[in-house]
Nucleic acid binder design. Sequence first.
RNA 1: CUCCCGUUCGUCUAGCCAGGUCCAGGACACCGGGUUUUCAUCCCGGCGACAGGGGUUCGAAUCCCCUACGGGAGGCCA
Length: 461
Amino acid sequence: MSESSQVRVRFAPSPTGFFHIGSARTALFNWLYARHVGGTFVLRIEDTDKARNTDESLRVLLEGMRWLGLNWDEGPEVGGGAGPYFQSQRADIYAAYRDRLLASGRAYEKDGAVWFRLEGERYTAYDDFKKSEVEKVRSKPIVIEDAVRGRVERSEETDFVIFRNTGDPVFHFVNVVDDIEMGITHVIRGEDHLSNTSKHAELFQAFGAPLPQFAHIPLILKQSGPGKMSKRDQGALIEEYAKRHFLPEAVRNYLCLLGWNPKDDREKMPIEDIIEAFDFKGINKGNARFDERKLSSLNTEYLRELPVESFAWLARPVLAEAKVLDEAADEDYLQKVLKLCQPKARSIEDLPDYLAYFFREDFTQDPKATKKIAGRSDFTEVLDLLVALLSDVEPFEVPNLEATLQAAADAQGAKVFSWFPVLRFALSGQSGGPDLLPMLTVLGKDRVLARLARSLDAAAH
RNA sequence: CUCCCGUUCGUCUAGCCAGGUCCAGGACACCGGGUUUUCAUCCCGGCGACAGGGGUUCGAAUCCCCUACGGGAGGCCA
């Protein structure tokens, strides 16, 4: 058997119809830790809010998890010995736990709801937040040894509801009951739950259950402006990155680096290496601001090193969808274009714009390039020259092209590089792009000469 | 209002626990130079931070205290 441990962690999302980037990272950190120690990663669905569309919401969630490669050992669709893994199916478990508290006097009914009873001296005081007199309790402080933050001490000071008057249990209660029932040993979650932990610890203690190891990870803040990222923020949802054809490995790698790092300056890392290096010591305390530019940069790196076949496999449907490719597109030609463009491409999402001119004659001309290049006084002169030179190149291959152009330039004491922008612009409408000479051979002699002629024609009018 | 957590370049961060090797290192972005016959490639360089104040110490980014700022929580939401 391979190494395994008794460690059990869980990711317990509430299906909302979105897979938020912060949730995704919480899932990721749990998964990483489980894989690092050879433990068990449980996926538990907190679907207690019946109002939400659970089928569709669950699908979004599971798809997002799979897209990021976060496989779970127990949970929906895979089962496990601690199920059911949907809170909506665990009502009798919650009722049994509630009754235990009722029986032991640690819970009582009031206003149709069930309240947890804190232990300690009671007094009433005006609460400036609730704007009313409140019964408070001098309870024994709860001390948590958080794996990320160290010792954190806090006390609950008011009894709290564990079952609503509707008969439904509340989050804090089901969360703790499920963690006990499912044998969760490590609770890795966002720092927004740190203050709730005293409440959870009270419940664990009331049930005579040992506290799990807590690890509160920093939050992800908006790219700009105050506060944590919310669903409404640009770039806050995992499904956006899938739709925009980011590579999941890149997104996952970037997420790993938000709040964790291996301390040795490695950034782009295979997931196996991250799993190996991942531990609580590497997790930061401070919140992190999401930066799409850095994500993009990582994504580009991953893109560049993809086998050309994979790159093509990813690119093809995107180009088809953008109508860059028509049904008559030649497969062999497409492969050549993609092979040429992959080393320079920044993203799959921008690929249609980047290489449309390979497939369409009605390509657009970049305004800046037009001004800079087509506005040159020698523009038509150079075009004339290029038509004359390139017409005679046979075969139309890089060495010949290079030799012909260089010879002509030498003969008239000109610089070859001064012609290149003109040539590229006439062929693509751009000032930049893939390597020019190979680009000529991919486009082919006929297409090249035709575009030069057309450009010349346009310049004459 | 109360409590909890945090604070190193614009951003992600290393260094802090075990004070000196840090006039603070890396990455993204930005700027400049070079290479490349072109380029959104590649290489080199630059810009740029220890929140502020006290203290401890021969010496503090590192330890202690205070302040400021940021974040979170305080629901019969999760």
